[in-house]
Design a protein around this nucleic acid. Structure first.
Lengths: 201, 201
DNA sequence: GCTTTGCGTGTCAGAGACTGACAGATATGG
DNA sequence: CCATATCTGTCAGTCTCTGACACGCAAAGC
């Protein structure tokens, strides 16, 4: 147990995060060069100086290296949504929450790396699958909040549709952003996507 | 090669389809009882009286038993969309195309079995993944047709959003239908879903 | 009728992603 | 220095999926 003097992450956690980051760095390079499916776990592990077994102790599945930790970002988005005013239309609240998410990514400086990762993601079936699971998770986290803000009847189906449509917008945003070479902004694409769709009130 | 007297499916194809149907039948029973992940390919093969290797000659992947042949249905939907009048709003055309698809399924009497299959599908990650690939495929087939019907600018992004949103509606439709015990109709749910969302014209 | 050809099938071997069990190494705290 | 917890590698095993080979059977050609 860590001493009570510091309430921050323990030494072990720092070390663990550092190793995870290193693995991610090495793996993304390999994926970018040879393609996700052409790189084996053992190759990544060797490049990172460890055994394949140890790789799986840091990432349960090979896909997790690219997708990251959906849980953390899901909480971020959920909290952002919860912080929105109650009288705002849900569609706008969702857009604002995704906007905050994107803003966080950009500020963190992961955008360049993010574009590489996203290009790998959208071009690999098993990674798209993992991404879908992220949507499902986020959906389960957002659904009750969205449903609570909807007027009277049919809230279950309405909320489901709205959330899924929002994810579709987010997906299209990231996909087109990854496939384009100019400097089009994620925020810009997100706004355009959300504007093209409107839930009937 | 078959003699020219009959232009129908060859004997081999009939036999192949029959075997495929038999495997599907046996496998769905096993999946429904034990869950998709708990049933091995060898178990299905044994229950169908063949080796595991032969199973894979009929279905490249275990998931294909549940998902079926996306290509065929994709063509069906694409043709249905192409047959719609040019001046109809794309959103309505998409709804009509999905309606036709659903109608075909219901007429074929696969609805009961379909509900079982759908329950297995929505509760298994790898099957949801395969279903997503189906969406991607259908999307690639529909996208050019949809884009061609859209007014002037930004057709690429607009088409992408509209198609993805339509798939979201279709997905929610099947998912809620599978999870509900009453007699709510697929068409009914589809209509409600599509009505809740409107692309801005 | 016999052969040739094509096709379906089983067996075998192997890659690749994981997972559990065990044992040694390392570092953390007293 | 020791006791503890954690990390790590090795090994073995499961499961999906693929390629290669050989066997059997049935239709087609002579």
């Amino acid at each position: 147990m860590p001493s009570t003097t510091s309430s921050g992450p323990s030494l072990r956690e720092i070390s663990r995060d550092a190793v995870r980051a290193r693995i991610t760095e090495v793996a993304l390079d390999l994926f970018a060069e040879h393609g996700f499916d052409q790189v084996t776990v053992d190759q990544i592990a060797a490049a990172a100086g460890m055994s394949g077994r140890t790789f799986h102790r840091y990432f349960p599945a090979k896909e997790d290296v690219v997708v990251g930790e959906p849980e953390r970002w899901g909480e971020f988005v959920r909290d952002a949504f919860a912080a929105r005013p109650d009288d705002e239309p849900v569609w706008d609240s969702l857009r604002a929450s995704f906007e905050a998410f994107i803003g966080f990514l950009e500020q963190d400086g992961r955008v360049q790396r993010g574009k590489v990762a996203m290009r790998i993601l959208v071009s690999t079936a098993s990674l798209r699958a993992r991404n879908l699971e992220k949507h499902q998770l986020w959906g389960r986290m957002l659904l009750p909040l969205v449903a609570a803000r909807l007027p009277d009847d049919d809230t279950a189906l309405r909320a489901e549709i709205i959330v899924q449509a929002a994810f579709a917008c987010l997906d299209v945003t990231f996909t087109t952003w990854a496939n384009v070479d100019d400097d089009t902004t994620l925020s810009e694409l997100l706004e355009r996507s959300f504007t093209m769709l409107q839930p009937t009130t």
